[in-house]
């Protein structure tokens, strides 16, 4: 059968590494710009954790929690809350809408490497996560009398940003199963109760014992405990346990997201 593969110039199958890197950077850059200009994302991602922190950590919080100033304690929990929001909305909301309304198909018809699409969303979410944590730290340092060394600060930021990955994977999993328009509502139905039950709004010690015990099964609890450990108010459990939980949870979510991805790809040719 005389197809034209021989008569037309054939192109390189493999992209050089430099080109690959450029695609990933552009994907992340434009994903960031897109969400920065999308007030529903950028404003609410930053606004809610900052507002809660100002209200409960700075304005109302005169006491100490577990021997630590409220303003320091709540930096850890509201940062976790903020990181989780930035990650879930940054991945799930966009993925569900773009999948459901045809945009992802336009991108899949192009030679975009599929992984770049997901990486772009994760990197974008991490930039917002970093911003939220830095803002809360800045507020705590300037108005809350919080003192932290440089290495402690860096450790906190790094932990929270790396610890946002499980929530990015969770977002991808949700994005594959939520409807294009209902995704934000679906995310909130998961995000808000999960935050509360993990002690991100009200410290766990003020919650009933049943809830304190239940919190151990929730991923945000483990990230907040890692963060609290760094500011000096952890429950003195092993950090490894927390990381193990978070890694296990990520693997689970990746499995679900992969299932969704393959379900979509399975409809494709080849």
């Amino acid at each position: 059968m005389a197809t034209a593969s021989t008569t037309l110039t054939s192109s390189a199958a493999q992209r050089p590494l430099g080109h690959m890197l450029r695609i990933y950077l552009k994907e992340a850059k434009y994903e960031f710009l897109k969400n920065l200009r999308l007030r529903a994302y950028s404003v609410s991602t930053i606004f809610f954790p900052v507002m809660f922190y100002i209200l409960f950590g700075l304005v109302l919080g005169r006491n100490t929690i577990g021997g630590l100033s409220t303003s320091a304690y709540l930096i850890a929990t509201y940062s976790t809350f903020g990181v989780m929001g930035a990650s879930l909305f940054g991945t799930a909301a966009a993925l569900a809408a773009e999948r459901g309304l045809g945009w992802l198909q336009v991108k899949r018809a192009s030679p975009m490497p599929p992984f770049a699409y997901f990486a772009g969303k994760v990197i974008m979410s991490m930039i917002f996560s970093t911003t939220v944590v830095m803002l809360l730290l800045l507020l705590g340092f300037t108005f809350g009398g919080v003192h932290m060394g440089l290495s402690q600060t860096a450790q906190l930021v790094a932990t929270l940003v790396v610890g946002s990955l499980p929530f990015c994977t969770m977002g991808l999993a949700i994005g594959y199963f939520a409807g294009p328009n209902s995704a934000p509502a679906t995310i909130n139905m998961i995000y808000l109760p999960l935050s509360f039950c993990s002690g991100l709004w009200v410290p766990l010690m003020f919650l009933p014992k049943l809830m304190r015990d239940f919190a151990r099964f929730l991923p945000p609890y483990h990230l907040s405990q890692l963060a609290l450990g760094i500011v000096g108010a952890g429950r003195h459990e092993s950090n490894w346990t927390h990381w193990e939980y978070l890694i296990g949870f990520s693997v689970l979510c990746l499995g679900v997201a992969r299932f969704g991805f393959q379900r979509d790809e399975g409809k494709m040719y080849g």
């Binding site: 710009l33 897109k34 200009r37 999308l38 773009e98 045809g102 945009w103 198909q105 336009v106 294009p180």
Partner: peptide, 10 residues
């Protein structure tokens, strides 16, 4: 392709 929604903030 026919697409219902294209990202609007780019």
């Amino acid at each position: 392709l026919q697409v219902s929604r294209v990202p609007e903030t780019l």
